[in-house]
Design a protein around this nucleic acid. Structure first.
Lengths: 350, 350
DNA sequence: CTGAAAGCGCTTACAG
DNA sequence: CTGAAAGCGCTTACAG
């Protein structure tokens, strides 16, 4: 059943059917009703690929994620998806599994006009390539970014957030502080390490090179955190405080401390990053840097829509507010264990 | 830049360019090389919507998920995606957020020919609707299913798995056993409750109605598990063992026990379902029913591809093997805490 | 307010 | 092995 069939039955031209569907105001009420009746009767569904072909827009955007399995990204994705759906767009999901080649493949969907635009939650391609692409297609970066790249970007200030997390440990009196850092080939890893170093330096604390252990995103994160923490604990003088790249690694790190017969926070204090929901499920509850994950997704998608609609964007870098959430994994102030529904909620989804 | 432009430069017809791209054997080596050179030179990218329109296939499938945020489904999705990519298909993700209407909307993408087929990880539509749809379009069900529906389905035997989990508690000597069940409007909730009842009955144990507490998937699962466990603990005689619908709820349940000043497993033993990775991160490590999540995804996608390629499928129900993983949350046998890389791995991703 | 006609960029049966 | 031509199902400028 195609449009011309509907037209024939309704005794109008295909053009009229098309108008009823996408521009009903252009059609008289009488004709419109007649056409709609036929459409319902035969249960006509327009062939959307034909429409896409004709209108040169797919009403689909691509979200490229480094790891779909991560609770962090699913929150961001939900922000993207909600805005997309509200505006009549679909979201294709591209999971690169932290693989550069897959990232590159997904980006090519733009060139083939398969999608109207793209939100990149991973930005590991060459700067020049992205720059070139973004001159021709709507692209927004979120979470990850590229220094000096003139493409709309939504993220937090990772350096200052990392500084904050580290300073929290310093304020609690720690001096032997280590950092299980993210991979050095992703900017977030480099930024958070930078923030860590800044905090240490401005407090006149040394950073022992063996106190920096690089985590690995290509294996299960908590496993990577476990391994790196074990290395730290095996040192002659292990650290008493550790700032960990993200919450998932931090969980592994906590496990490592416990498995070694030590306690968190008494023997080793730990701060994470991202404030995942499970940070209040493990013991002790994890102190962490909160990122407005859902809002980042929303903001990024809104920007993308602006670009798709050729609206001007007068800023290209959108820095969202992060927040240090203090729980029990560093000692000091401790959160209460609320029993009521309300406070559970506050506790678990800050 | 379109195909006819490339053709002009290469001094051939558009038909020849098309053949070079999709049926190179039909073209002489000489012509082929000439055309390929031009294609590279001008960096021609075929317009894939035009191709989709012409060939009437989108090389895209839709995966409909009830909750993209859940670690369970991301594993299944990865299985789907890996197979899809290998076979040159893209995956559109539809997150229904446990909302029936959204499920229905996504399913309509089939009618609009936006996708070549669909894997449903949620099956809450009317049986008749799905039956009708599946007569016209390739559809595979995974994880959730509909009784008596003749559509290829991949899942575990939820009833027997639930029985196994419950019997584990019974064998450990528990008699006051409760079940925090899944929502009664999804089949998995009903099935697991059924398995629970079967195990109780065949062991001559009573099921106190107040020992059945229905969880809620529309709120944060661990919060729901927390709430329901609090209700159980408030009973005059609280249960000593609880089988929980899934691991996320089980985490909340464990938290509730601890927050009430009781211990797991000494005061309350808990078994979960799904064997998520975080079940070895919380304390105590959660005993749980393992589902072959990734394999379910692979199998479902393979079946879908068979249907898309009009191959015959001679069975419609594929039951995968589940497995009770015993850890520490029920007492009895306890798992060791391995330190080496290898055993961590085994421990964390059974 | 409505219709006839052109055309979006490919692919493929047909002819040679 | 190659080309000319038709056509996939819509939308939209144009004319009336």
């Amino acid at each position: 059943m195609k449009m011309s069939d509907v037209a024939k039955i309704a005794n109008v031209s295909p053009a009229t059917v098309s108008r009823v569907l996408s521009n009903p105001d252009l059609v008289s009420k009488k004709t419109r009703d007649k056409v709609l009746e036929v459409i319902n009767q035969v249960n006509y569904q327009p062939h959307s690929v034909a429409r896409q072909f004709r209108t040169r827009e797919t009403k689909t955007i691509l979200a490229v994620v480094p790891d779909i399995t991560s609770a962090f990204f699913s929150e961001v994705l939900r922000g993207i998806e909600h805005v997309a759906i509200k505006e009549g767009y679909q979201v294709i999901l591209g999971d690169t599994e932290n693989n550069l080649e897959r990232e590159s493949d997904y980006v090519n969907l733009l060139l083939q006009k398969q999608v109207d635009g793209m939100v990149l939650l991973t930005a590991r391609l060459e700067k020049e390539r992205l720059e070139e692409l973004s001159e021709h297609f709507p692209i927004v970066l979120a979470c990850e970014y590229i220094d000096g790249l003139n493409v709309p970007t939504v993220s937090i200030d990772n350096i200052s957030a990392a500084r904050k997390a580290t300073e929290h440990l310093i304020q609690l009196g720690h001096t032997k502080i280590a950092h299980i850092c993210g991979p050095m080939n992703v900017i977030l890893g480099r930024d958070r390490l930078r923030g860590f170093r800044q905090a240490m330096m401005s407090n006149d604390l040394d950073v022992d090179p063996s106190y920096i252990q690089e985590g690995d995103l290509t294996i299960e994160s908590s496993e990577s955190g476990y391994n790196q923490m074990m290395k730290l604990l095996a040192l002659e003088t292990p650290p008493t405080g550790v700032f960990v790249y993200n919450d998932e690694m931090a969980m592994g790190a906590i496990k490592a401390v416990k498995d070694s017969g030590l306690r968190v926070p008494e023997d080793v204090a730990i701060v994470g990053f991202d404030n995942l929901k499970m940070s209040t499920v493990i013991e002790p509850h994890l102190s962490s840097i909160d990122q407005p994950k859902y809002n980042i997704g929303q903001k990024a998608m809104n920007l993308l829509l602006q670009m798709i609609n050729k609206e001007k964007i007068n800023k290209h870098s959108f820095v969202m507010k992060d927040n240090l959430i203090i729980r029990d994994s560093c000692g000091g102030k401790s959160e209460s264990f609320p029993h009521s529904h309300e406070s559970f909620k506050k506790n678990i989804s800050v």
